[in-house]
């Protein structure tokens, strides 16, 4: 009898706790339905239609998957832009990760003028925005200075197979631009580095481990979560960047006479799909790596 009433009370307590919890997140659930799910499903609906907007209302003309097949099979630019985006992202992510990790390792050391360097290295967090990057690129300050124009490099590029040429070319012309996307990632790495217990280093050093071994055996494995977080953050930031060529193309098609909202919506969904595949691939790759590291 006693046990029964207690368990009933426990249930009601748990229900109460859950209700209070829902109370706190209710505002988000409403927002999610109104500002994410609803527009997302509407965009999907548009993508299956030929959409024409007049001053007063929207006219829909159901065309099934025609917008999708047009984007994938007829449009001369879209697939090429998507492939370019995929290649550029796959080239950029490791560079951002390695660069951010090295900077964080430096900033984790003790040296004079560290505060000054920290201030400089976090500048990109504040500055990186579409119009500013666009101006910088237009001025040519975003590429590795002049490398892509050296005759020897041009010859070298011409000899590369086509599949390899575009990533290498992208690397040379946009190297510095990529570095501008590393601000937040440096912060995240630095925070993880500072969480590593100092006594582990000391113990390893007493056991005769070299700095090199300490890096591979202690530091790198403890950075695996931060690496995963940074990889996702980098991919999402690069994919949402307003000067991203795919985004510009979709945006321009929205207002184009031959494009229209339906077509742009279909492309937006294809782009989203590619992005999710990229994220999933990088996620599983890094998870495998983290698992091997922790063994």
């Amino acid at each position: 009898m006693m046990g029964r009433s207690r368990s009933r009370r426990e249930i009601s307590l748990r229900t109460r706790e859950a209700l209070h919890g829902y109370g706190f997140i209710l505002i988000w659930i409403v927002g999610f339905l109104l500002f994410t799910l609803l527009p997302l499903s509407e965009t999907f609906h548009y993508s299956l239609n030929q959409v024409s907007v007049t001053a007063t209302h929207i006219h829909l003309d159901f065309v099934e998957w025609a917008n999708y097949s047009r984007a994938l099979f007829t449009d001369p630019n879209f697939v090429e832009l998507l492939v370019g985006y995929t290649v550029e992202t796959l080239v950029s992510v490791p560079i951002v990760l390695i660069f951010a990790m090295s900077i964080a390792l430096f900033l984790n050391l003790k040296f004079r003028l560290k505060g000054l360097f920290r201030v400089i290295f976090f500048l990109p967090i504040v500055i990186t925005s579409g119009p500013v990057i666009k101006e910088l690129t237009a001025q040519g300050v975003a590429s590795a200075p002049g490398i892509a124009n050296i005759p020897a490099v041009v010859d070298f590029l011409a000899q590369l197979p086509r599949a390899l040429r575009s990533p290498v070319e992208y690397l040379l012309t946009s190297f510095i631009l990529i570095l501008w996307f590393s601000g937040v990632q440096i912060l995240i790495y630095l925070a993880s580095l500072q969480k590593i217990d100092k006594s582990i280093y000391e113990a390893a050093a007493i056991d005769g481990a070299s700095g090199w071994e300490i890096f591979w055996k202690i530091i790198l494995p403890s950075l695996s979560m931060a690496t995963l977080l940074n990889a996702i953050y980098t991919i999402v930031t690069l994919s949402h960047f307003s000067e991203n060529r795919v985004i510009r193309y979709i945006y321009n098609q929205t207002y184009d006479v031959r494009g229209g909202i339906g077509y742009a919506s279909a492309m937006a969904f294809i782009y989203f799909g590619v992005m999710v595949i990229l994220l999933a691939a990088v996620y599983f790759f890094l998870m495998q790596w983290a698992k091997r590291e922790s063994k």
């Binding site: 500002f35 527009p39 994919s239 985004i247 909202i261």
Partner: peptide, 21 residues
């Protein structure tokens, strides 16, 4: 589920929701 949806709101490109809005 809420955490999953949070992650999704982070990765959805803005152009997938912006026009109906």
């Amino acid at each position: 589920i809420v955490f999953l949806l949070l992650l999704i709101t982070f990765i959805i490109p803005p152009q997938n929701t912006v026009i109906p809005q």
